[in-house]
Amino acid sequence: MTDATAPMLEVRNLEMHFSLGGSVLDRLRFGKKGPRLDRPVVRAVNGVSFSINRGEIMALVGESGCGKSTVAKTIARIYKPTGGALRIDGEDVADHGFAQMLPVRAKMQMIFQDPYASLNPRQKVRDIVAEPLLQQTATAAERREVPAKIEALLARVGLNAEHAGRYPHQFSGGQRQRIGIARALSVTPGLIIADEPVSALDVSIQAQILNLMKDLRDEFGLAYLFISHDLSVVHHIADKIGVMYLGFMVENAPRDVLFSRPRHPYTRALLSAAPSIKEKRDKEEIELSGEVPSALSLPSGCCFRTRCPFAWDRCAAERPALRDVGEGQTVACHLIDEPERDVA
């Protein structure tokens, strides 16, 4: 039985590591029982924890390669997590097989970044939207209701009934993303994972899609995991924000707290680099130098120390853990203990 008070999504110490190598030639040469070579491991996600309540929108932000999209795909069980707990509507699905995941997928759907690549070009819109719905429909009476449901879904996302007979290439980018949203809504999920759903769209269309997603949240009580690198988009839609760097969660806070009082140097650097049409005379400027380290060989201690302007000896010796600093904000930084070192 579903617990209405439990989070729609709960992630605890999630890890996702990828072993490199192990090609077809290796298997032909050694076989499954042959000698195992030492293979390098990409540590894409490292102990990430957060939760999302019903009707709440959480955004994950960070530079390209920080692991936010890997988190989204692992939660969607496109990848099987290396470790940690992953609960959808109270059910731990981290170790579920394909058959066990089928009923869970009715509770969780995904909206992808490229609305054209995520739609089958050989299917008409009615078939695209109906496919997940038919997978979850058991009786003949329910199947007879599918055409009416498709028409209602298309109308809800701003499309006409006549669009059901067209192919994806006959639509604009914004219309294709609306089709993707209708498909996600077809099985009445409680959680939608949106992986940069507006980054491929024009700015004016972005606003329309974001407002549509917020309206659907209010109407259906949806929970969103929203992946983005655009802080202006995140400020518009998110209720709370998690900041990731090199597979680690470095800060997590309600939206207004994070934008008004960022505590981690990486978060502050992201906000200082964000473009704005408004003049900010007192805007903090933090310039990062160097490159993001490789996930094949993580730095000791704090992974951000190689680029942090405030790093000192402790940062190299001890990896900081997320700590509660009040107002729902958690930060993984040694500056919390020694704020006097926080000088430009």
Rank of each mutant, 00 (worst) to 15 (best):
S272Q: 13
E285R: 06
F30M: 04
E63H: 01
Q109K: 08
R255T: 15
G158C: 05
Q123G: 01
E91P: 01
S228P: 03
A295D: 13
D89T: 04
A164F: 04
R143D: 11
V187K: 03
S186R: 07
Y116E: 10
T137H: 04
V129S: 02
A344G: 02
I75K: 03
Q206P: 00
P168V: 11
A138I: 10
A85P: 02
P275Y: 11
P81Y: 02
E10Y: 01
F98C: 06
F310I: 06
G62T: 07
M108I: 14
L271M: 15
P309Q: 11
G221L: 14
A152R: 08
I179V: 10
V292G: 00
L159G: 05
G67M: 05
Y266P: 06
D89N: 12
D38E: 10
Q206F: 11
A223M: 08
I193T: 09
A273K: 09
R305W: 08
T267L: 12
A106G: 11
G67S: 12
R176M: 15
G90W: 14
D114R: 01
L270W: 15
N120A: 10
S289Q: 07
P168L: 12
R307T: 15
V325G: 06
G190F: 11
Y167T: 05
E142T: 06
L20S: 04
R178Q: 11
K214E: 12
P197G: 13
H229S: 15
E291M: 10
A59C: 10
E219D: 09
V104M: 10
G83L: 01
I209G: 14
P132A: 02
Q109T: 14
G31F: 05
I277E: 15
L322W: 06
V125K: 01
D114N: 11
I193R: 02
A200E: 15
M1N: 08
D202I: 14
W312I: 01
E10C: 07
A321R: 02
F171H: 07
Y167K: 04
A253W: 13
A295L: 12
E338I: 04
S272G: 13
V234D: 11
P262C: 15
